[in-house]
Design a binder for these strands. Structure first.
Lengths: 197, 197
DNA sequence: ACCTGAACACCGTTCAAGT
DNA sequence: ACCTGAACACCGTTCAAGT
């Protein structure tokens, strides 16, 4: 049972750090660079080779989060059939599901502190996630379910509504059951409000 | 120009801590208990007599924030006249204005981490702020501007929509001008969606 | 190129002691 | 009752040095 000495080189420390960080985040723990290094088995200064500072690691986590959020949204819409309200609801549920299941990660993604000087890749990942919802309204206008107008504006209102309800749920102002109910109510009202008249 | 020695007793350390904390928050700084104590001129352990730990100070700030938010909402609605859409817009602008002007404080208020075991007074302050929006929909139902149904559900949807757009603005996904424009669009759609048919 | 280990300047929290 | 000062166990960041 001798402790096998760790090799000097760690296989892929960058990836190991990101994975360990996501695990810690999912477990509701605080992110400490030193603690991550400890769990992986490298010195506390080793992460510096891969992330110049803590914010760089947080940005990488956020970027990955936006990619996964975009995937989840596209996946949900891909399975949602043709009815506009059904597609809106699928979008809302997918967004809120991600938000509730990855509350700490979502907070990082929207932290905003690291936005003025954020990496271009992070900005792009966020835009790509948002585009998944944008497409929904372009479709809706084509099928006559949605009034004319800048789809980006309309999309942002819908995105904001769902984001807001998810944020309230993550703030414990709503329980999960109430969230699902309110999402349905919000979607119903949004669909009515967006219909051409 | 001799430095006048500080008296042993500080007049009202609790209040001084809260005020200094709000100032720091408004300036975009990080909150450090030790730094607050330093700025006020007491030892780093002195705050402990008034706040058992850092979270207790954060909770007190959040509670004060909810009270001021409620005041701002009630004030805006008091000045808003009778038209339902105008009142909705006044509410939305007042909420978003507070959110943008006190971004760091809002984050504290909705942190949620400190909610499961939060003080009852904090919960009540949050509820009271929310009630300011609730009243709007009870009115709307009385005047026939809003469909029947649980006003708390309807209120939460509206609250969530405005909260979400403000959160996106604070995440730098929207600039201030776009926020105001989107609030108006969201309110217009909400009002249409809520109308009895 | 990648990592270590010591060092620096911070934290929040605790506690015996002072007045 | 209210505050101090030293102590403890942490942080993130830096840097000379090792391989």
């Amino acid at each position: 049972m001798a402790v096998t000495p760790r090799p000097y080189h760690h296989g892929n420390l960058r990836l190991a750090l990101l994975e360990q960080a996501e695990r810690t985040l999912a477990d509701g723990g605080e992110l400490s660079l030193r603690e991550l290094a400890r769990q992986i088995g490298v010195s506390h200064a080793a992460p510096r080779r891969h992330f110049p500072d803590k914010q760089a690691l947080l940005d990488a986590l956020a970027e990955d989060g936006f990619e996964r959020l975009g995937d989840a949204l596209r996946d949900a819409l891909g399975k949602a059939g043709d009815d506009f309200e059904a597609r809106m609801l699928a979008f809302a549920r997918a967004y809120a599901g991600f938000a509730v299941d990855h509350a700490a990660l979502l907070e990082l993604m929207f932290a905003g502190k690291h936005r003025p000087d954020a990496a271009e890749s992070l900005r792009q990942a966020a835009d790509r996630a948002f585009e998944a919802s944008l497409a929904l309204f372009v479709e809706g206008q084509a099928t006559g379910d949605v009034v004319a107008g800048d789809p980006e504006r309309i999309g942002m209102v819908a995105f904001g509504t769902v984001h807001g309800l998810a944020a309230l749920a993550n703030s414990q102002m709503l329980d999960r059951a109430a969230l699902d109910d309110l999402l349905a109510a919000a979607v119903e009202r949004l669909v009515l409000g967006l219909r051409p008249r």
